[in-house]
């Protein structure tokens, strides 16, 4: 189990995460939803250990959570120029991973330069890279960005069948209820609420209502 206890994270003087606590059980899929700038990526960076926490702890079975156990698929699709998809995947040694089969499943031209890929193809390639790493814990930051309906559906099915601990963020609230066991709602750097599967519909309504309450006056003014 991963225990995140009372962590604070700042960028300079700005506190981005405030007293965040979570329990992540082995083998479950956890979603993190929140608006842009709510602190989702910062939380993932802190979990992976590339953003230092000001206070609090992140432990796995009472020991420091190690990067050795994690495949982190970041939101940015950054690839080296002049590299082919297959060459990129070949960086990882995993003989059980059939790159061609996965390439076919996700419809990625692995023998072409990544520079020529569409945004969605790049996203799918980075997901494949993470899958080839074959770790116990998967962290996906906005994996559905840029994916078409078919690829989104395939990715959802893959995540469901992974049988690994998965932490996944998305600002597209609609996609997470299909795959998550639990969803944390983050707002202003704080975990506002944890939802179970049975509460997901209620969660969507609450989030939409909160957004509407926040902006309805501004929209009215802007449209005047």
């Amino acid at each position: 189990m991963i225990s995140i206890d009372n962590i604070d994270v700042s960028y300079g003087k700005k506190k981005v995460l405030k007293n965040v606590s979570m329990k992540i059980e082995k083998g479950n899929v956890y979603g993190i939803v929140g608006l842009n700038g709510s602190g989702k990526t910062t939380l993932l960076n802190a979990i992976y250990g590339i953003k230092k926490v000001d206070a609090g702890t992140i432990l796995q079975n009472n020991e420091k959570l190690s990067k050795q156990n994690i495949a982190y698929i970041e939101t940015e699709n950054f690839f080296y120029s002049y590299i082919k998809g297959k060459e990129y995947l070949n960086l990882i040694n995993n003989k059980n991973f059939d790159a061609d089969l996965w390439g076919k499943l996700f419809n990625i031209p692995l023998n072409e330069l990544i520079d020529n890929y569409s945004t969605g193809m790049k996203k799918k390639l980075s997901v494949l890279f993470g899958l080839k790493m074959n770790k116990n814990i998967y962290i996906f930051d906005e994996p559905f960005n840029g994916l078409d309906i078919e690829s989104s559906q395939i990715l959802k099915l893959v995540i469901k069948k992974l049988k690994k601990t998965v932490i996944i963020t998305s600002h597209i609230i609609e996609v997470l209820p299909d795959i998550c066991d639990y969803i944390f709602y983050i707002d202003g750097g704080e975990v506002k609420r944890k939802y179970n599967i049975s509460d997901f519909e209620k969660m969507k309504q609450q989030i939409y209502e909160a957004i509407e309450n926040n902006v309805s006056d501004l929209i009215s003014k802007a449209l005047q």
């Binding site: 080296y80 120029s81 002049y82 590299i83 960086l91 520079d115």
Partner: peptide, 22 residues
């Protein structure tokens, strides 16, 4: 930037992990 970009004699030196050289 195309898939038929030049591959030279030295490409043999660039193994899988040497992505900078590839």
């Amino acid at each position: 930037k195309n898939s038929t970009a030049s591959i030279s004699l030295f490409s043999r030196l660039a193994k899988n992990e040497n992505f900078e050289w590839i």
